[in-house]
C-alpha cells in the first residue's frame, strides 16, 4: 500500500513538472505562430500554366489558408491551412473550381520521412497537449 502511495505521488510530481515545463518554457518566435495542418490532393483534368497560377493565388488568398502549391503538371495540389478556419472538404471544393477539376484527397505516407523529427515527435506532441498557451 505504501509503495502504491509513493508511486502515485511520484507520478503526480512528474506530471506537475512536465505541466510546468510545458507552460513556462520559452517559446521561439516560430512556436508563437498559430499551428498549421497540411492536406494534399490529386487533381484530374487539363490545366494550363496560367490556370495553375490562378488556382494557387485563389487558394492562397482564402481565409485560413497560409500557402497552396500545384505542381507543374497540374496533378497534385498541397495546402497549408489553419484547421480552426477551414477544413479539408472546403479546400477540396475550392480546388475543384466549381467542377472544373476532379479532386481527391491524397493519403500521405505515415512512416519514414525525417528520422530526427520522428524520434522527438511523441515528446513534442505530449508537451504541446499540456501547453495551455496553444
Amino acid at each position: 500500500m505504501k509503495k502504491i502511495k509513493i508511486l502515485s505521488l511520484s507520478l503526480v510530481v512528474v506530471l506537475a513538472g512536465l505541466f510546468t515545463y510545458a507552460n513556462l518554457r520559452p517559446l521561439s518566435v516560430a512556436e508563437k505562430l498559430p499551428t498549421v495542418d497540411l492536406a494534399s490532393y490529386r487533381l484530374k483534368g487539363p490545366m494550363t500554366p496560367a490556370e495553375r497560377l490562378a488556382l494557387e493565388q485563389k487558394m492562397s488568398a482564402l481565409p485560413g489558408v497560409t500557402a497552396c502549391s500545384v505542381n507543374k503538371e497540374g496533378r497534385v495540389a498541397s495546402v497549408l491551412f489553419h484547421r480552426k478556419e477551414i477544413d479539408e472538404a472546403q479546400l477540396a471544393r475550392q480546388l475543384s473550381n466549381k467542377g472544373q477539376w476532379r479532386v481527391a484527397q491524397k493519403a500521405l505516407q505515415t512512416s519514414g520521412g525525417c528520422p530526427m523529427h520522428g524520434m522527438t515527435a511523441p515528446f513534442h506532441a505530449f508537451i504541446s497537449v499540456l501547453d495551455l498557451r496553444n
Binding site: 497540411l38 502549391s69 497534385v76 498541397s78 497549408l80 519514414g112 520521412g113 523529427h117 520522428g118
Partner: peptide, 26 residues
C-alpha cells in the same frame, strides 16, 4: 513546404513528416 509536398521528385521524403500535425510543426 507546399511546393515540396507538390513536387513529385522529392515529396516522398517529406510526406510522413508533414502528414503528422506535430511533426509538421517541428
Amino acid at each position: 513546404l507546399t511546393n515540396v509536398v507538390a513536387d513529385d521528385m522529392i515529396n516522398t521524403r517529406f510526406e510522413a513528416t508533414v502528414g503528422n500535425h506535430y511533426r509538421l510543426q517541428v
